[in-house]
Amino acid sequence: MTDNKQSWSIVVFCYNEEGSVQKVLSDVENTLSQMDIAAYEVVVVDDGSSDGSQTKIQEYIKGKSHFSFLPHSVNKGIGQALRTGYFNSKFENICAVPADGQFDISELLPFSFVPDKTFVSFYRKENTTYSIARNILSQANKVINKVFNGFYMLDVNWVKIYKRKAIVNLNLELQSSLVESEICAKLILSGHECKEVVSKYLSRTSGVSKGASGKIVIQAVKDTYQLYKVLRKFRKKL
């Protein structure tokens, strides 16, 4: 029924992805056009790219009213890029996807309708392209979340579908990539259902991974204790 159709905001976050960003934007647009939804927007966040990403983005979105472009003047990291996208989106369902092309956008097709108090978490069954250091960091994050933060997810750092109204009410505090852990933990602790769905992890066609850069890892380590404190305070308010 038409009354049950939901609206969608997809955030595409980009940092030095000039070789793949236009294809990702095209895939996003094509997928959204196939979904049975009421309305959509695509929010493109460039996190201070130093290559030709911003030019590629502007070329693709020119004249397309359902696209918006939010560039950072400097590189601020994935956490800030996600926050910019989430807090500048306007529709009911929000999903952030990377501009590197490693997420298959068509995996969103079965989820045109997402029930209230539910979020969808895609998880990568195999991370064979990860470095040893990044795999260790990922596994350590799972253990810390389970033991100290009271929740367990198969892949807290991959693509999610959230309810916008749920995110804006969480009073998010973290600035690093651990903002995803903060969101998921707060949603689970407040009674939201996490629907975990297996996802393919596509190979890069260009560019290099930035997810395990020294700057990002150091910030994430610093924020681990901060996340623990934030969630402890959140539990006391429930």
Rank of each mutant, 00 (worst) to 15 (best):
M1I: 10
M1D: 02
N4Q: 07
I10G: 04
V11W: 07
V12D: 06
Y15K: 14
N16V: 10
G19D: 07
Q22D: 00
V24C: 07
D27S: 10
E29Y: 06
E29S: 12
N30G: 08
S33Q: 00
D36E: 02
A38W: 00
A39H: 14
V42P: 01
V43K: 03
V45N: 08
V45H: 10
D47N: 14
G48M: 11
S49L: 05
D51E: 06
D51W: 01
G52V: 01
S53E: 03
S53D: 01
Q54H: 03
T55P: 01
I57E: 05
Q58F: 07
E59W: 03
E59V: 04
K62A: 04
S65G: 10
F67Y: 15
F67W: 13
L70N: 09
P71S: 02
H72K: 12
K76M: 14
G77H: 03
T84Y: 09
T84F: 09
T84S: 13
E92R: 06
C95R: 12
V97I: 15
G101L: 08
G101S: 04
I105K: 04
L108G: 07
L109R: 15
P110D: 11
P110W: 13
V114D: 00
P115E: 03
V120R: 04
F122Q: 12
R124S: 03
T129P: 12
T129C: 09
A133L: 14
Q139A: 11
A140T: 15
I144Q: 03
N145G: 05
K146F: 14
F148I: 02
G150C: 05
F151N: 11
F151W: 12
Y152I: 02
Y152R: 05
D155F: 14
W158C: 06
V159K: 03
K160M: 06
Y162P: 13
K163N: 01
K163D: 02
R164G: 13
K165L: 08
A166T: 07
I167F: 08
N171D: 05
S177E: 08
L178V: 05
E180M: 12
S181K: 02
C184D: 04
I188D: 13
S190D: 02
G191T: 03
Y201S: 01
L202V: 09
S203Y: 11
G207A: 11
G207I: 05
K210D: 11
G211L: 14
V217G: 10
I218D: 15
I218T: 15
D223T: 00
T224S: 01
Y225F: 10
L227W: 00
V230W: 11
R232M: 04
